[in-house]
């Protein structure tokens, strides 16, 4: 084993103009430039990418799964945020 492992980076790829970057996986690299090049080699061998972001994994702040309840259920019952909540006559157009 080497004394020090290369840091972990999370990789995000935009696969087409007009699409958002999407998380595709992670990789190790000594620096950010190397992380970008490794991401290009590892995750875009088949023209999957037009743009790459790499982010040191240690800098990602994630919500905790244990807090899933308080984080996300409160939105469940606010059904008035969804368009289907409203009953309108079928023959009204443009809404």
């Amino acid at each position: 084993m080497t004394a020090k492992e290369w840091p972990l980076y999370e990789v995000f790829i935009r696969s087409g103009q007009g699409l958002a970057h999407r998380h595709v996986g992670s990789l190790h690299a000594a620096d950010a430039t190397m992380a970008l090049e490794n991401a290009r080699d590892v995750y875009t061998r088949r023209n999957e990418g037009l743009s790459i972001w790499v982010v040191p994994s240690k800098d990602v702040t994630a919500s905790a799964p244990e807090e899933k309840g308080e984080m996300f259920t409160p939105a469940d019952d606010k059904i008035y945020r969804h368009p289907t909540f409203y009953n309108l006559p079928d023959d009204v157009k443009g809404l």
Partner: peptide
Amino acid sequence: GHGLYLYSAAETLGRSRD
């Protein structure tokens, strides 16, 4: 490449690549 995708998946379980 496939080895690396899989190491990346395994690492999410808490064991590092090294």
